[in-house]
Every structure is written in structure tokens, then in C-alpha cells.
Amino acid sequence: MAEAVKNPRPLSPHLQIYSPMLTMMMSIVHRITGAALYFGTLLVAWWLIAASTSPNAYATFQDFVGSLVGCLILFGYTWALIHHMLGGIRHLAWDLGYGFGPAEREWLARATLFGSIVLTLLLWIVGYLMMGGQR
């Protein structure tokens, strides 16, 4: 390892060599959503800690989540969670050896993207209606 750093050797072709493809972009997005969810866990922890602390702490959390910035973060978290979940199911299918054909993998990529957007919007519409249509 130390020698490799001293004498840079040719590396295998990386991302910038290939023209973008849907399956490749989806792979990248899967990793990005995973990293986003990693830090989004702080939001879940805050939610639970606030509830276990006091009505005031919970009100502070609710005010943040209800604010414009909070809504955007929560919306992003919802989409990242759904997208990462659907992408994960796709990966589990691949791990079992299914869905590797050219048409199949393209269809799976589109279904993941489309499904994540539709499900996220549906959840937010249901949530909005549950709030009584106002915030």
C-alpha cells in the first residue's frame, strides 16, 4: 500500500470514462441516498429523544419539521428511504441471480425510480390529508 502511493500505477478505468447509463446512475443514487439516510438517522434520534424529554422539546422538534427547511429535509428523507428500499430490493433480486438481462435491468431501474417518486408523493398526500389539509 505504501509503495503504491509512492509509485502511482495505472488504475482501471473509472466513472468519467463511461457514458452515463440509467443503471449506472441508479447505482450512484443508491449510494448517495444511503449516505443521506446515514445522517438522516439524526432526525429519527432527535424525534425519539425529544418525545422522551419534555413537551417543550417535542414542540421544538415539531416546529422544525413543520418549517419549510424541515419539510424539505423530511421530504428528502422520505424519498431517500423509499428509493434506497426499492433499490435494495432490486439488489437482493440481483444477489439471487434474477433480473440481469438487458431488458430486465433497465425495467427494474425505471420501476425503482418511478416507484420511489410515486410512493413518496402518495405518502405526503396521505400525510397532508391526515393533518386535516393544513399545517
Binding site: 429519527v44 424525534w47 418525545a51 419534555s54 413537551p55 417535542y58 414542540a59 422520505t78 428511504l81 428500499m85 435494495g88 430490493i89 439488489h91 437482493l92 405518502l123 396521505v126 400525510g127 391526515m130 393533518m131 386535516g132
Partner: peptide, 24 residues
């Protein structure tokens, strides 16, 4: 990952069930 599919769905349901509810 397999475990988190049903667990995440359950947590979404729980979170949405708390929408608009107070601290108590």
C-alpha cells in the same frame, strides 16, 4: 437489508400515525 424492508414500512406507518398529535 431484508429485515429493514418491513421495519422501515412499519416506522413510516408509526411516524405518520403521530402526525398532528401532541406530545402526550
Amino acid at each position: 437489508a431484508v429485515a429493514l424492508v418491513p421495519l422501515s414500512i412499519a416506522v413510516i406507518v408509526i411516524g405518520m400515525g403521530l402526525l398532528g398529535r401532541n406530545h402526550a
